[in-house]
Design a protein around this nucleic acid. Structure first.
Length: 283
DNA sequence: CTGCGGTCCTGAAGGC
DNA sequence: TGCCTTCAGGACCGCA
């Protein structure tokens, strides 16, 4: 699922291709996923692409911004050439070899390319806002974990205020921005901390380890261009999968052996979500 | 403040 | 073979 490393990978890929391009038209194929008026951005030029938490923003030169949230199964795929269907050399997960597909809910036409928004589950959304709203949107979200602000002290401040399970604090977008189930599970493994531990019960040393572990796994996710696990829909705008799934430590590895100690990896539910951990390494 | 359950949605997987 | 139920999950919402 698209978390910080996946959305950031998409952002970087799109930035290379779309900066300076003019949006000539928008086809909305499933109206409920699109909020606002697409006409407000048609004819405008892309001047910047940013990410905050798991939200992607495309700024236009007319003071408007397109916001994308991919939620669980959203995809942004960029194809070159005008008109007609685009055929890919490998199938796009849940979309197939050709776009637009049944899961394609919006198409953005640029000078020499088309951007397809696909979403199997239809949880994702697109919104047109005034670019000035960026600050207000950003204020509702927590610290960016790959920024210099995410220090051990900053994490200490966050965890000291709640006794909720540490796993839920990691995925709380109002506390730390951009972490989802994959990287929360792997970061807790890397830090040797049990996901069920009350946040305020962590020692200063554990908080430091957790901070470093979060940064480590997110950077590793970025290095491999994100995670494209089985049954997951994430692909880069080129249609290529990411590679981090080959390096999962515990995520989706229930019943398999812990890469550190060889114990059998367990799965529990925390906050209604699957949580994977090594019962021996994580205390 | 916190937890809990429901909501959106589709496809995979399991039961019989 | 095929129908039916269950499950997965990011963010949000209402309720206790």
């Amino acid at each position: 699922m698209p978390e910080l490393p996946e959305v950031e990978t998409i952002r970087r890929d799109l930035e290379k291709k779309l900066l300076g391009q003019t949006l000539s038209g928008v086809d909305i194929r499933l109206s409920k996923i699109f909020q606002g008026k697409s006409a407000d951005v048609v004819g405008a030029k892309v001047i910047g692409i940013w990410r905050r938490a798991k939200l992607l923003g495309v700024d236009f030169d007319n003071g408007r911004t397109l916001l994308f949230h991919l939620k669980l199964t959203g995809q942004l795929v960029l194809a070159f050439g005008a008109g007609g269907e685009i055929t890919f050399s490998r199938p796009i997960p849940f979309a197939g070899m050709e776009l637009p597909a049944k899961t394609t809910h919006a198409v953005f036409h640029f000078d020499g390319s088309r951007l397809f928004f696909n979403d199997l589950r239809q949880f994702g959304w697109i919104r047109v806002v005034d670019s000035s709203q960026k600050e207000a949107i950003s204020e509702q979200m927590g610290v960016e974990p790959l920024s210099g602000e995410f220090t051990a002290g900053a994490l200490e401040e966050i965890v000291s205020k709640t006794k909720r399970p540490i796993k839920l604090v990691l995925v709380d977008q109002e506390k730390i921005a951009g972490i989802g189930n994959i990287y929360a599970n792997d970061a807790l493994f890397e830090a040797g901390i049990h996901p069920q531990r009350p946040a305020k019960g962590l020692s200063a040393e554990e908080v430091k380890r957790l901070r470093d572990a979060v940064v480590l796994v997110l950077n590793e996710g970025l290095k491999y261009g994100g995670s494209s696990a089985a049954d997951e829909s994430y692909v880069r705008p080129t249609g290529e999968p990411g590679g981090y799934q080959k390096h999962f430590r515990v995520y989706q590895r229930v019943g398999q052996l812990c890469p550190r100690c060889g114990a059998v990896i367990k799965r529990v539910n925390i906050g209604g979500r699957g949580t994977f951990f090594c019962p021996r390494c994580q205390k």
